[in-house]
Design a protein around this nucleic acid. Sequence first.
DNA 1: GTGAAAGCGCTAACAT
DNA 2: ATGTTAGCGCTTTCAC
Lengths: 351, 351
Amino acid sequence: MTRKSEDAGRSTIRDVAARAGVSASTVSRVLGGVYPVSAATRTRVLRAVREMDYVADARAKAIAGAGTPTLAFVLEDITGPSFAHMAQGVEREAARLGHLCLVCSTDGDVRHELEFIEMMRAQRAAAVILVGGTADTPEYRERTRRIADSLASAGSRLVLCGRPPLGPGAPVTVIEYDNEGGAYALVAHVLTQGHRRVLFLGGRPDHTTAQGRERGYLAAHRARGLDPDPELLLHGDFTRDSGHRLMRQALERGLEFTAVVAATDMVAAGALTALHEAGLDVPGDVSLAGYDDIPFARDLHPALTTVHVPYEELGRLAVRTALGHTADTADEHLLLGTHVVVRGSVAAVGD
Amino acid sequence: MTRKSEDAGRSTIRDVAARAGVSASTVSRVLGGVYPVSAATRTRVLRAVREMDYVADARAKAIAGAGTPTLAFVLEDITGPSFAHMAQGVEREAARLGHLCLVCSTDGDVRHELEFIEMMRAQRAAAVILVGGTADTPEYRERTRRIADSLASAGSRLVLCGRPPLGPGAPVTVIEYDNEGGAYALVAHVLTQGHRRVLFLGGRPDHTTAQGRERGYLAAHRARGLDPDPELLLHGDFTRDSGHRLMRQALERGLEFTAVVAATDMVAAGALTALHEAGLDVPGDVSLAGYDDIPFARDLHPALTTVHVPYEELGRLAVRTALGHTADTADEHLLLGTHVVVRGSVAAVGD
DNA sequence: GTGAAAGCGCTAACAT
DNA sequence: ATGTTAGCGCTTTCAC
C-alpha cells in the first residue's frame, strides 16, 4: 500500500503492456513510430495508453539511447532586455529543432556558472551556450578551455556568445557581435555632428563587452586625430540605475561635455532621466546615444540613437551552429555585424 | 574503434571503478556522500574521478532514484519585462532549492504549451508553473484540469500563476496578482484628479489579465457613479507596438479624453510616443498611466505613474508553494496585492 | 568496508 | 508481427 500511494499513476511501459495483453517491446514499438505492428495490436495498445494516461519516462529513454536532446543556455541576467531577446532566439530555435532548453542565470557569479555547467555536463547536454562578456583573465581562458574540452570529450559542444575566444585549437564555437565596430560607427556619427567632448558611460572595466565598446569609442576619436579626455570615461555596469548614478555624478562634478554615449540603452535610459532631472534638454543641451536598440529605445524622449544588435538572430545562430558541429570541430569564429540607428537624441553641436 | 571514437570521454562509473581498482558500488558510495568508506579507498576513487574527469550521468541517477529534481516554467514571451522578472524569481528560487529549471516560451500558442507540458510530464518534472493569462473558456478549464490531474497522479504539481483558477477540487496551486484591484486603485487615482473621459488601452478582450484590469477600470468608474463611454475602451495586446498603434488610431478618430490608462507599461510607452508624435504634452495635455512598474517606467518622460506588481517575488513564491505541497493537496489560492506608484504622468485635469 | 546482484524504465538486437 | 533477452549507467539491498 505504501508503494501504491506513492507511485500512484506512475505507470510504466510494462503496465501498459499488461493491460493491452502484449509485451513491453510491442508497446515501445507502437509508441516509437514506424516499426511494423498489426493494426489490431496498435489499436489496443493505444487504447491502453490513453486509458492509463501513460507518458514514457524521458530519462529512461535518454539513457537507453533514444530521447530528446537537451541544450543549455547560461546567461548573466535574464532581465536584461538584450539577453531576453537572445534567450528567445535560443528557445525558439531549440524548440524548432526538437531540443529541450535549460536556462540558467548566474547573476554574474562565476561559481554559479561553473556549477550550472557541471550540471549540464551531467545531463549530457548536446550543447551549452555561454552568453555575455566576462573578465578575460588567464584564469578565465584556462577554466573555460577545460570546460570546452570536457564538454567536447563528452560529445557535446561549448558555444561562446559575445564572449572572448579562447585562443586557437579550443573545441568551441564563438559568435561575437561587433562591439568595437558598432561603438566606432556610433561615436563617429556623434563626432561628425561636431561634438568634441563626449562622455562615455561604460560598463565594468574588466568586462569584455564593455571593453569592446570602449575601444570603439577611443578608436573613433583617434581616427580623427582626437584624444578624448580620460576624465570623460566613466565606469559602472549595464543597468539603468548605473546610468542614472553615473550621469548624476558627472553633472555634480561639473564635467564638461556636449554629448554622452552610453554602453547600453538601459544605461542611456537612466542617464536621460538624470539629465532631465538636472533640467537639461536632450538633444538641445546635450546629445545622447545608447547601444543595443532595445524596443524601448524608441519610446524614450527623444527617441534614442543607438546601435542595433540582432540579438534574437544571434540566439538562433548560436543553437544552429552548436548543433551543426561534431565534437571535434576545432574553434570556429563568427562575427556578426551591427549598424547604427539614427533617431532624435543626437543633434549637431550648437544647434 | 567505432565505439571508441563515438564514446570518447564518456566514462562510466565502471570505468572509474576499474581504474581505482574497486567496484562500481564503491565508487557510487564515495560519490554519494556519507556512506562509510575507508579513507584510502576514497582517496583512490577520488583521484580516478579527477583524472578521468568523470561526471555521473544525471539521467541514469534520476532513473535509479537519486537525481536532481526538475521544475518547468512555461510563459508566453520571455521578452516581456514583467515575465522576465518572474522568470528570474523562479530561476533563483529553483537554484536555491537545488532544482533544475526548464524554461519554455510558447508565443501564446496553445499547441506549443500543450506539447511542452507533455514533455515536462515525460521528464517527471516536480512541478510545472504556467504563467500569464489566457482565454478562460470551458475548453481551457477542462484541458488544464486534465493536465493538473495527470501531473498530480504522476506525483508532480501544476501551478497557475496569474491564470484563472479551475474551479474547486482541482489539484493546482493558483497564485494571482490582483489585476482588478490594482487597476481599480489606479483609475480611482486618475478620476480623483478630475478626469472624466479616460481612454483605456486594453489587451486582448478574451485574455484574463486584460479582463481583470479592464474590470478594475470599469469598477472604479461605477464606484463614483460614472459610466465610461464604451468608445474609450480599446483592445490590442500587451506590446509597445500595440500601444503605439492604438493611441494613434484614437487620435485619428478624434476621440476625446483627458487621460489614458494603458493595460501595461509597455503599452503606455508606445502610447506616450504616439502622443508626443501628435505634438501633445504629457501630462499637460493628457495624463497617462501604465501597469506593471517595470524599471523602465521611471525613464519615460514624464516618469510613468503605474501599478507595482511584485513579479520576482511572485516567481519565488510560485516555486516555493509548488514544491511545498504533496500531490494530493487540493486547490489552493493565493492573491498578491499590488500598489500604485505615483510619478509624474498623471496631472489634475485643467492644470 | 566492500563486492555481487538486482532493478529503475526504456530500447534494441535477436529470435521466432 | 511479436516476444525474449540484453543492456543503458546508476543506486541499493544483501551478503561477506
